[in-house]
Design a protein around this nucleic acid. Sequence first.
RNA 1: GCCCUCGUGGUGAAACUGGUAGACACGCUAUCUUGAGGGGGUAGUGCCGCAAGGCGUCGCGGUUCGAAUCCGCGCGAGGGCACCA
Length: 811
Amino acid sequence: MTDERPSTGYHPEQVESKWRERWQQRGTNAPDLDRPATEPFYNLMMFPYPSAEGLHVGNMFAFTGGDVYGRYQRLRGKTVFEPMGYDAFGIHSENFAIKQGIHPGELIPRNIANFRRQFERIGGMFDWRHTVDTTDPAYYKWTQWLFLQLYKAGKAYKKQASVNWCPTDKTVLANEQVEGGVCERCGTPVEQRVLEQWFFRITEYAGRLLDSLDGLDWSDSTRNAQRNWIGRSEGAEVDFASPAGILRVYTTRPDTIFGATFMVLAPEHPFIDALTPPAQRTLVDAYRAEASKTDLVARRTGEKSKSGVFTGGFATNPATGKPIPVWIADYVLMEYGTGAIMAVPGHDDRDFAFATKFGLPIVRVIAAPGEEASAPLTEAHHGPGVLVNSGPFNGVGTDEARAKVTAWLAGKGAGEGKTLFRLHDWCISRQRYWGPPIPIIYCDACGPQPVPEKDLPVLLPVIEDFRPDDSGVSPLARHKEWYHAPCPKCGKPGRRETDVSDTFLDSAWYFLRYPSTEFTDRPFDRERTRRWLPVATYIGGNEHAVLHLLYSRFITMVLKELGHLDFEEPFTRFRAHGMIVKDGAKMSKSRGNVIIPDDYIDKWGADTFRMYLMFLGPLGDGGDFRDEGVSGPRRFLERMWLLVAEGGAPRPTEPVITPALISKWHRAKQRATEGMDALRYNTAIAALMELLNAVKDEGAHPRALVEEMIVMLAPFAPHFAEECWERLGHSTTVFDARWPAFDPALVVESTVEIVVQVNGKVRSKITIAREADEATVLAAALADAGTLKFLDGQTPKKKIYVPGRLVNLVV
RNA sequence: GCCCUCGUGGUGAAACUGGUAGACACGCUAUCUUGAGGGGGUAGUGCCGCAAGGCGUCGCGGUUCGAAUCCGCGCGAGGGCACCA
């Protein structure tokens, strides 16, 4: 805290507390959201879950990165709206509360207060009039409203589903929350349970969610993660006749159908009983019983050795007309495709392994160029080639064959082309306490009824013992007064839905709420929304690349379709910030490697700390945290402080400024601007440092230059810049100034240094007038002593001239 | 297995559409200020070499007058998907 160095007079703690207060008094960070004739800029950052530990350096890195961008846009003349809030519902908070034995309703406000303090301390330009807390009834009222809109539009439905069940957290997990067969939160192996669950029909939008990605200004890595998640595959559905009826399969390789020598059904497939003759029944039932015991996750991720059983039944391959045996195996999943496959052991690894294990025939139907049709297969061959042993299609290339075989099958009434997605409907119900109750009332007479919108919010009751139990029923069921509610339709006694909704639903629309927080009678105001959305720039972690961003896009699409919004993509531009790790590992309390920024801010000041974080590298990169090097940005600020002290003093005449300094000045502005736009703040800061070094070397510091430097520094060191700005005689905030423009003509100097290469190696450098033409430059290069030495008396065969850069002489 | 992203000094990193590799900063060395342990100034700092010079952006090839940058094949790291038919 104490600063022992011979002081330049810069005392961060004084400067920073002064400007925190000023900003508050002046409303500097609270823009008029309705002010016309200015360009609105919605600068959004992913709101945090308010943990008890507070914001760590990783959060500070991310939020500072976002804040710098917002401040920069403001200096570019935009009206910037930069809100912040708290994603405070969910398992995370609840589990922590359980562990501490404190009710989350008590814990969360405490954490939020701490977060708020940290957000203010770091100097964020947040508009606190427009904050959001997802656990506030004034907010979740509208989360419930959102559920009702989807419900009424038929986009929400309830079904029996085998779901992932975490025995430790005692809750259903979304597929997304299961990683490698274990709960992503606590690491317990996940089991399967069959429960009634609420789903949103996100799969209806799979195609649009995928196709629209192309038009978004998003990081490639993020778009790619979404593509993988949605998982489109092109193929065909094909019908195989069987005694139990038409067995439909899905395949991405219709071209290999002549090689389908058997079929495999998922153990849950409805045709199994009809296909199985009495003699096989015992074996088949035993296998199915075994498979149902193994949970879904284990079936997906367990060891890949194949198991299965023959049903005893046969189906007809529509291409060959031959009967093929129908097997059952757990490597076929009921919830993807039709739950049945045609097995082509010659050209699919899994089918090959299965056929090998059970002695089923393997037929080659694709040959590489020069390969015999009869060549034996020692492993599945999946490369391209030409069809063989495929009747009328022999000799056709595989790519072409896909379409041709599909058409041929369709012509016979035995199939059709089909696009499939891997995406599943979104399970939004949770058998937990800490979330918004799903606004449904069950009535014995009328069935499930939506709670009328006028009755929202359905308040989450205070329950002392909110812990989940093994029953699979939410703790809310234990609150009798709350649980029993009259049917909204007939008035007879009914029961409330006791599930709460997924936290991801809270965060799938929060960005719509921010601009409209003062409206209590609508989730988002039409005019405000029209003016401020979609979000101009969204900065957040790539860990939300799939779920949060996908759900937000889905909700936005639905709201557009229902007429509530005019746009269907919520985030025009998304950039993922990198992660700050410690000793190569993600910071987490359990690892004990969490770096709390407060100490650093105490010691160095928020401005230095912000600069330091942003100087580490590009925002998208993140990095390993170590505190070596914080002194660099601090020294820079100290030197700037002195420069301002000198630059602010009255002078009889402006100092002489050399053309070289003018050039460096404009170059710095150019580089700073480019760095800001590209979120490569490290280069912007470097440009400012270089300019300061140049000013020092030249010994001249014209006031205009000093002022521009302060403006460019303001996004990084806002308190510092405000103080300097004031000392330079300004009475309004530096953020009302304009980001300085550079003159491209002045960026270049009047003389340039030309590199002279001989055979591509740098041998000399010549300084020459910028306007010198090619002949002049070449003549100078050839006359240069340093060059001559390497030419060795020879005349160059070839002379490459790159204007303003280099000459390459080839001998 | 498939799909992305990436690999540069002792360290964090720069390098525009292929055109001086290592800007800026940390650290380090020397030196000057100086009475003292995260103070300032100056100079130096990719590697080898006294030097001339040579070698250098994960490795090997290739394209090019010229490659950190483009192409191919490896190796390594991080991330996404994954018995998905």
